[in-house]
Nucleic acid binder design. Structure first.
Lengths: 341, 341
DNA sequence: CGCTGTTATGTTAGCGCTAACATCCTTTTT
DNA sequence: AAAAAGGATGTTAGCGCTAACATAACAGCG
C-alpha cells in the first residue's frame, strides 16, 4: 500500500527480476529475455513455460534496465507549445493512437511557447534515449539546434511547412491567411482587422497574418493588426470584439487567429445585439466543432489535426522500421464557409 | 592494449559519458555525478570546473543509466480515461506545472475508459520505475489492483472520493448530483430527464445520476435516464435534445452529465427556436468556460479541476520528500446558477 | 595529543537487462 | 557421408550511472 516498508537492503528492490524468472523456469536469462521480446526466436514449448513462470511470479520487466542495455527506449518525445489549445491535443491524440498501438510510449513536454523551455525539454528527452522526437514548429533556439543536430534518431517537426531538420508534416499557414483574406474580400468586406494573441510567441498566427496582409495589399487595402496579450480563449475573443469596435469603428470584418477568439467574439456580438455578418463579419482558424455549433456558423479554416498526428506517427514508424519516407508532407487545409461572413 | 575504440564499437553510443567528463576534468566519476545531482556536496571551485567541462564537451546525462543505478526515475505516471475531455486536460496541466517545477517528468497514459488498458499502462509504468502514480478514479481491474498493491511508491487516485489505495483527491459526485437536482426542483421543474454518455464506462456520471435520482425520489418523482452511446460532445448534446423531445415530450428540464452535452443541447434549442428555460431548462456539469459564454448562460456545477491537479501534485511531492499528508482531500464543487434553468 | 566530527573526494560493486559471440544440436545440401 | 546451414539456447561482458562504504585532510576540543 504505502511506502511504509523500510528494509535496509543494500541496493535493488524487492521486485522479481528476469534472472529469478530464468532460474524458476530452468533456463538462462537471455532465453527469458527473448521469450518476452522476440518470441519467434524461442521454441514454442519453452516460450509457453517461460510465460507461465512470468505470470506465476508476477514478473514486471524493468524497462529502465532494458533501455540501458539496448541503448534505446521505446519512448517518443513529443513537445508542444500548449495543452490549453485543443489543436495540439488532437495532434497528440493522433500521435498517441498510432504509437501506442506499436508499443511506443509518448513522453509529453509543454513549452508554453518558450523556446528555452523547448531546449531544456529536448535535453531531458535526449537523456531518456528516446527513439524519436516530435516537436511543433520549425523555430528553435540555438541551444536546441545544437542538441538536435548531434542526434542520430528521427526528428519530426509538425504544424507548419518549411526548412526542417529532418522530417516535416504540416500545412502552409501563409496560404491559409491568403485564403481567408481572399474569401473576406470576395464577400465584399473592405475594413478587415486581424486579431491574434501573443503573436511573437504564436508565430504561426504571424505567418497567417502575413498572408492576410499580402492579399489585402494586392487589393490596395490596409491590414490593421491587433495583438492581444492572451492566447485564444472565448473571453479574450469577447474582449477583442469590444476593442475592435472602439479602435476601428468602421471595421466590417474581423479575421481572428483562431476559433476560440472568433467564437468568443461571435457569442459576445450576440449578447451586444450586433448582427453577424450584417454589422460585422467574423472569421476564425482551426475548424473546431464549437464554431460549427453556434448560430451563425463560424466561417473558418479547417486543419486536419488528428490526421496530422497519425501521419507524422506513421512516417516516424516507417523510418524507425528502417524504411525511407519523403521529407516533407503537406496535409493542406480547407475553407469552411459558415454564415458568419 | 587499448583496443577499446579501435575495433568496431561493440556497444554503446558515440555520446559523451560521465566518465569521459570526469577524465577531462581530472576528477572521479562520482564527483561529476555529485556536481550535477547534489552540487552542495562538492567544493565550489571543483564544481565550477566540472560544470565548465560538462559544457565544453556538450555532455547530456544518460537518465536511463541514472535511473537504473538509483532504482528510481523522476517520472510521475499519470493515467486518465480521455484526452478529448477538457476536464482531464486541466487536471493534467495542474499536475504538470507543479511537477515540472520540481524536475519531475510526467508519463501520460490514456485508457479510453477501459480498465484493462489501465492495468496495461500501470504495468508499463511500473517498469519505468516511476516515483509515483496518479490515476483518475477509484475503480480498477483486479490485475491493476494486484500490480498496485505490491508497489511501494505513492499512489494518487483523483476525481472522486472514497476508499482509496493510498492518497485521494477529488469531489463527491453523488453530492453534486443531489445539488443540481435540488436546484432544478427549486426552480419548479418536475419532469427532469438525466442524460449521460457511455455511463457504464464514465461511471462518475453514474454516481451523479444516483444522487440526482435520490433527490427526485425524495420529492416523489421519477428520474428517467438516457444513456447515449457517445461521450460528451456538442453534437451528441444536440442529438440528445432531439431524442428527449421525442421520447419525453412532457419534459421540462434536462440534467446533462457534462457541459459539452448541455451546451450542445442549448445551442441546438436556439436553432430550433425553443425557449431556454421557458420551454425546457438545461443544466450541465463541469463549469467549462464555454457554458458561461452562451446565451442564456448555462447552469452547471464547477469543479476546481486545475486546483485538483495542483493539490494532488503538492501532496505527492510532500510524500516524496518524506513528509506525511492526510489520505483524503475533498476539493468540493460549486453550483453555478446561470440563466438556462 | 589523541578523539571526534566534518567536509571533500575516491573505490568498489553492482542496478537488471541485452548485444555479440559461442555452442550444440538437427536438418538440408552436395 | 561430409559439409553447410539453420534453429535453439547459453556464456560473457558490458550499458552509464550511483549507493554504500572508504579514505584523507583538517578543525575544534578537553
Amino acid at each position: 500500500m504505502s511506502n511504509a516498508s523500510s528494509s535496509r537492503r543494500r541496493r535493488g528492490s524487492a521486485r522479481t527480476t528476469l534472472t529469478q524468472v530464468a532460474e524458476a523456469a530452468g533456463v538462462s536469462a537471455i532465453t527469458v529475455s527473448r521469450a518476452l521480446n522476440t518470441p519467434e526466436r524461442v521454441n514454442a514449448e519453452t516460450r509457453r513455460h517461460i510465460l507461465a513462470t512470468v505470470e506465476r511470479l508476477g514478473y514486471v520487466p524493468n524497462l529502465v534496465a532494458g533501455s540501458l542495455a539496448s541503448a534505446s527506449s521505446r519512448f517518443i518525445a513529443v513537445i508542444v507549445p500548449s495543452l490549453a489549445n485543443a489543436v495540439f491535443i488532437e495532434v497528440i491524440q493522433g500521435l498517441q493512437e498510432t504509437f501506442e498501438a506499436r508499443g511506443y510510449q509518448i513522453l509529453l513536454g509543454n513549452t508554453d511557447y518558450d523556446l528555452d523551455r523547448e531546449a531544456q525539454l529536448v535535453r531531458t528527452f535526449l537523456g531518456w534515449s528516446c527513439s524519436a522526437l516530435v516537436t511543433a514548429g520549425l523555430r528553435h533556439s540555438e541551444a536546441c539546434h545544437n542538441l538536435l543536430n548531434g542526434w542520430d534518431k528521427p526528428i519530426m517537426e509538425m504544424m507548419e511547412l518549411g526548412e526542417a531538420l529532418d522530417l516535416n508534416v504540416g500545412l502552409d499557414h501563409a496560404a491559409a491567411g491568403h485564403c481567408m483574406a481572399r474569401h473576406l474580400l470576395q464577400r465584399g468586406h473592405r475594413q478587415i482587422v486581424y486579431v491574434g494573441g501573443r503573436m511573437a510567441k504564436d508565430y504561426r498566427a504571424g505567418l497567417r497574418y502575413a498572408g492576410h496582409r499580402e492579399e489585402l495589399a494586392a487589393a490596395g487595402l490596409e491590414a490593421p493588426l491587433i495583438d492581444l496579450e492572451r492566447l485564444g480563449s472565448l473571453e479574450a475573443g469577447a474582449d477583442a470584439l469590444d476593442q475592435v469596435l472602439e479602435t476601428h469603428p468602421r471595421a466590417d470584418a474581423i479575421h481572428f487567429a483562431n476559433d476560440d477568439l472568433a467564437t468568443g467574439a461571435l457569442l459576445h456580438a450576440q449578447r451586444l445585439g450586433l448582427g453577424v455578418p450584417k454589422d460585422i463579419a467574423i472569421a476564425g482558424f482551426n475548424g473546431l466543432p464549437l464554431g460549427q455549433h453556434v448560430t451563425p456558423r463560424l466561417t473558418t479554416i479547417r486543419s486536419p489535426r488528428h490526421r496530422m498526428g497519425r501521419l507524422a506517427a506513421d512516417r516516424l514508424l516507417t523510418r524507425l522500421d528502417g524504411g525511407s519516407v519523403s521529407v516533407r508532407c503537406n496535409v493542406g487545409f480547407s475553407l469552411l464557409v459558415g454564415d458568419s461572413t
